[in-house]
Design a protein around this nucleic acid. Structure first.
Length: 589
RNA sequence: GCAACCGUAGUCUAACGGAUAGAACACAGGACUCCGACUCCUGCGAUGUGGGUUCGAUUCCCGCCGGUUGCACCA
């Protein structure tokens, strides 16, 4: 359904036109002075210049034209030339009824031109545990994907595993040292390789850092690893079998970890999947004359005249002929275009990689890897800092594993729940998990992605203030009221939303109408924090209303049913929003 | 050195060029203690600095100060 601001703007615009002014001046926005009005239009001031008239005169004329319009309960022309509006309560109630009838989307229409959008937001390395550095990408990316889906786009999330390069050789080398008897190392072996991996995930997680440490001190060891990498990449069978074991074991573990974060991917592609595309891609770049040798390396120039600084060329092959990060990312674009032909690819990556991605994007465009109108978007996020304002670390100063962070918050939440409430152990654990996730995600998503933010456990897990748990608590409260209402033998079958009888009720209703615009805008700007801001406002509006209105004690059954409808709609929208953000509410907490 | 990003109450954050810069935490009061640890109200308090554009600037432009980050064979 149409957004309320558009409906109002239409009315006001036709009034401007009727008074002889251009239609562009009729745009109405939310009031930034809620004490004066609900909606405002500043068009008269802008029009003053063009028509050489005092702004307030124009505003007066338009206001005059609009008086008596059934959409408004008041239309005022104020001082310099503002037009202030208040919506008619009956009109508002009708609008909400329509929203409520749309139980899936609450009046938020799907986009008219759905796009295929790939979103690259994982970036974990195999054989290495996820750490806090992976948290933001996962949280933000998942949320954007869900927002896009809700808006009707075809969103494809790709985890883009780091599964290529020396790290694989290191693991193989270390494994060979420990278990040389394995058939994978026997070059004369021609049979089938075992289906069972010769290591567990915890062994793998120990093997990699050990090998990495050794290679830094022992050059012979490093050379062996490089040799193994080379042989792997050149198709040595046993090593490739090992690679798939490493992948299997690691991916299983990663999936479990992402699942705990309520994050999932449509594609589990990795850097290795891009490798087959490299030779042809490089050849074409050479043939087309884009790539040339500079200082021994094969590069493509990507500077543009408007640059304020020197943008280094994009390197395609190192001087030893080997591929590198850039090559893989470019080749990844090749298969993404070939297999999915996306209209847009969004990279949710640490903002420190901005320059790098500028190079890659320009190179992809220049060499024709993407279509003219394929949008390549870099969504850089800031660093997650500790309370000291420095990058988040463990107490010992190391990089914190994601699992540990999550379980720490879970524990914190569990304590809070059991301190204040008696609940079965199992339910308390489950609830703690759900609430903890909201704390982590909301704490992250409520900030602009591009900015650094401070991860403050105490603040994020608080039930008060602008936090995930506060939002959940508000939802749980609604669930509880609804349950009691129904337990008393009531149904909401024939109930309907009634015109507001109090200020706080109307404020809540107005807030509800913002849903479609808020969601649409948040996605258009790829800004999950706008969804957070909206639900926080909505939760607040509800709590004001809740504080003043005794819903279950209301004696007039019709009025009470109207409240319940309003409550259901609010709950539905809040739940939809948190679903889009990637978390959910428990039944009790 | 060059470049990019950022500087908003004590802390943490928001604001298509529009009215009195909006919240949260903390702090000081108060209401309720009833629909599940709550919730609500009142107060306190901020745009780093100097210019410019504009009827109007946190927002756009320039200088300065401060912080973060990045500047080809790592990913």
């Amino acid at each position: 359904m149409k957004k309320i601001l558009d409906l109002i703007s239409n009315e006001v615009t036709s009034a401007f036109v009727a008074c002889g002014y251009d239609e562009k001046y009729g745009k109405v926005t939310l009031s930034n002075r809620p004490d004066l009005c609900e909606y405002q239009c500043n068009g008269a001031m802008a029009a003053a210049k063009e028509y050489k008239k005092a702004p307030f005169m124009i505003a007066d004329e338009v206001a005059e034209k609009l008086t008596g319009n059934s959409m408004f309960s008041s239309v005022e022309s104020v001082k310099p030339g503002f037009l202030n509006f208040k919506l008619d309560s009956g009109y508002l109630a009708e609008y909400l009824k329509e929203m409520q009838a749309d139980t899936e989307r609450f009046g938020c229409e799907k986009t008219e031109n759905p796009k295929t959008i790939m979103i690259d937001y994982g970036g974990p390395n195999v054989a290495k545990p996820l750490h806090v550095g992976h948290l933001r990408s996962a949280i933000i990316g998942e949320s954007i994907k869900r927002m896009g889906k809700f808006m009707g786009h075809n969103m494809i999330g790709d985890v883009h595993l780091g599964d290529w390069g020396l790290q694989m050789g290191l693991i193989i080398t270390e494994l060979k040292l420990r278990k040389p008897e394995l058939v994978y190392f026997d070059e004369s072996y021609t049979g089938e390789y075992p289906t069972e991996a010769p290591f567990t995930i915890s062994e793998l997680e120990e093997i990699y850092p050990t090998a990495s440490g050794k290679s830094k001190e022992d050059t012979a060891y490093k050379e062996a690893a490089m040799q193994a990498t080379f042989e792997l990449q050149n198709g040595r069978k046993g090593y490739q079998a090992l690679l798939s074991h490493i992948l299997n074991v690691s991916v299983t573990d990663l999936k479990k970890n992402y699942e705990n974060l309520n994050v999932s991917f449509e594609l589990w592609k990795g850097e290795s999947d891009a490798q087959p595309y490299i030779p042809d891609m490089v050849q074409k770049m050479k043939d087309d004359g884009h790539a040339y040798i500079s200082e021994g390396a094969l590069v493509v120039d990507v500077k543009e005249e408007t640059d304020t600084k020197e943008i280094p060329p994009c390197m395609i092959l190192k001087s030893d002929g080997a591929s590198l990060y850039n090559t893989t990312d470019l080749a990844t674009i090749v298969w993404r275009m070939q297999d999915y032909n996306p209209d847009e690819i969004i990279y949710v990556v640490d903002k420190r990689q901005e320059l790098y991605f500028t190079q890659v994007f320009r190179c992809a465009r220049k060499t024709g890897l993407v279509n003219e109108d394929t949008k390549l978007e870099f969504l850089g996020f800031g660093t997650m800092n500790g309370k000291d304002g420095k990058p988040f670390k463990t107490r010992e100063g190391g990089v914190m594993r994601l699992e540990h962070l999550v379980s720490e918050i879970n524990e914190e939440m569990y304590k809070k729940i059991t301190d204040n409430h008696t609940m079965e152990e199992a339910e308390a654990r489950e609830t703690a998990k759900v609430v903890a996730l909201s704390a982590i995600k909301y704490g992250d998503l409520s900030n602009q992605a591009s900015k650094d933010y401070i991860f403050d456990v105490e603040r994020f897990t608080s039930f008060e203030g602008n936090t995930g748990p506060y939002i959940l608590y508000t939802i749980v409260r609604m669930k509880s009221i609804l349950a009691k209402y129904k337990a008393a033998g009531n149904t909401v079958e024939n109930a309907q939303i009634l015109p507001a009888k109090s200020e706080s009720e109307k404020a809540l209703m107005l807030e509800l109408t913002r849903f479609n615009a808020a969601m649409e805008n948040a996605f258009a700007e790829i800004a999950p924090h706008k969804v957070c801001a909206y639900i926080y406002d909505l939760a607040n509006a509800f709590n004001h209303f809740y504080h003043e209105t005794k819903i279950l004690a209301e004696e007039d059954a019709k009025v009470q049913a109207g409240y319940i409808c309003l409550l259901e709609l609010t709950k539905g929208i809040l739940e939809k929003c948190i679903d889009v953000l990637g978390f959910s509410a428990p039944e009790r907490m």
